[in-house]
């Protein structure tokens, strides 16, 4: 009986190994930088915060064929990066893709107002992965109107003074 249980346990463990290591983890710590730096190149600015008024943004880049890329977003409550999920046909799926023959990728991400901290985890195989972080700040569109009004207001004041 014990032998039978041990066999079942060993077989289950062996079968679960590839499933565990092939799927990207649901969470990543903020100091995880990966162990590779050349799997993908992100074309968007990564060294500084990107500012936009748009509701979505396109992350684009290039990389080796076959590299699997997964999108994460920072969660301040858990202080970790968590996988981004979308619902398609009532099924919840992570936002992930595999780089194809062209070596190019482009992924549209939705932005909430304020700061959006994303991370891309690129995996070549079980042991090799790269993490790139990118911060995008979505400004309120009303902000533009305020700046324009301010600009017009200053312009009017200057015109009056010049007269």
């Amino acid at each position: 009986m014990f032998k039978r249980l041990l066999q079942i346990f060993i077989i289950t463990f062996i079968l679960s190994i590839p499933a565990v290591v092939m799927a990207a983890p649901d969470e990543m710590s903020t100091d995880d930088k990966g162990n590779a730096t050349d799997l993908i190149i992100l074309n968007n600015a990564v060294d500084e915060e990107i500012t936009t008024f748009e509701e979505n943004y396109i992350l684009s880049g290039s990389g080796q064929e076959g590299v699997a890329v997964t999108l994460y977003v920072y969660n301040s409550e858990s202080d970790k990066y968590q996988k981004v999920f979308i619902t398609e046909e009532d099924i919840k799926k992570p936002v992930e893709w595999e780089i194809g023959a062209s070596g190019l990728f482009a992924q549209q991400v939705d932005l909430k107002k304020g700061k959006n901290a994303f991370a891309l985890r690129a995996e070549l195989d079980e042991e090799t992965y790269q993490v790139i972080k990118i911060d995008i700040k979505r400004q309120n569109k009303d902000f533009i109107t305020k700046i324009k009004d301010l600009k017009i207001g200053i312009g009017n004041v200057l015109d009056t003074l010049m007269k």
Partner: peptide, 17 residues
């Protein structure tokens, strides 16, 4: 729509196109 230059798809990096 986006132009390819806005995504930097007009530059040769790790891409083959």
């Amino acid at each position: 729509h986006k132009f390819s230059f806005e995504l930097e798809f007009d530059k040769k990096k790790a891409n083959k196109i």
